[in-house]
Design a protein around this nucleic acid. Structure first.
Lengths: 140, 140
DNA sequence: TTTACTGGTTGCAAAACGCAATCAGACAGT
DNA sequence: ACTGTCTGATTGCGTTTTGCAACCAGTAAA
């Protein structure tokens, strides 16, 4: 087994090396809030990720322990992608990114209605959301 | 003036399109916590960004309104890079990324001592930090 | 048995990246 | 005036990543 070779062990860098690209967090978002489980569902997202990029990112996120991939019993060719606890713990990051965009970027609230409600979430609400996600994604 | 063409107006995407790469947040980090102001200082960071990439990212961040660039009166060839309010408001994002890394990634606490202290910051502490940054970066 | 759907793979052109060398202007020391 | 160093870049070039469309074999539904 080879140790991953990070550019540095600064916490910001260690996060950026895992989710610092244009797609990874969107995949996490769809798994978190859009009830998507399957490859095709992720492909049909708002931003039109290409299938080869999606394949690559799913593999990378799995390697990094952010998601899991398992067979879907209902279809021999289907896989179910779930968030791990590590992936679910990206929720606060995503919420803060949302808050920042709400303040400075041209968010379309009609199209993304739960943005504002998520921005209002306090610590307890976030804890509850995490709990729900852990249950939904089968992490005990 | 041309409207920026975002892939979608989802808040997460709108954030990721601005700071979703391997370098931008590291630049913001250095401007925030390392008291760096100049090109060379940013170049000499832990992760060894190349000068052409740094040039590109600084220009991009300036375009996006995250940083400003102004002449340094002390040297005709020097520029001072400052965070805008928009940039300073990335602080909560950075804190949450740090928290996540502290929990799941091999952070080197000896090398990055203020990571833990920053993780403990509550809302009031963050407000104070923002205030200090606003003053330091001249967005009075 | 045809038709559509599954998670991909492949090929190719374009863009971004990483690295080292280079640059002209500015400044400090002598 | 000369020398060396520092300034924020730019340039050239090879590698990697991305974006896009076409394609694939296995599975399932009609």
């Amino acid at each position: 087994m080879q140790a991953e070779n990070y550019r540095s062990n600064c916490p910001i860098n260690l996060a950026v090396e895992v989710i610092g690209d244009k797609w990874s967090l969107l995949i996490v978002r769809d798994l978190m809030f859009e009830d998507k489980l399957h490859f095709r569902e992720l492909m049909d997202g708002e931003e039109k990720i290409a299938s080869n990029i999606l394949t690559d990112r799913l593999a990378r996120l799995e390697t990094e322990g952010v998601i899991t991939k398992k067979n879907d019993p209902s279809h021999k060719q289907k896989y179910i992608y779930n968030l791990t606890a590590k992936g679910i713990d990206l929720l606060p990051v995503i919420i803060e990114l949302g808050n920042w965009s709400l303040k400075y970027q041209p968010v379309d609230l009609k199209r993304f209605p739960h943005a504002k409600q998520l921005a209002r979430a306090d610590k307890d609400a976030i804890q509850k959301l995490k709990k729900d996600l852990l249950k939904k994604h089968q992490n005990s």
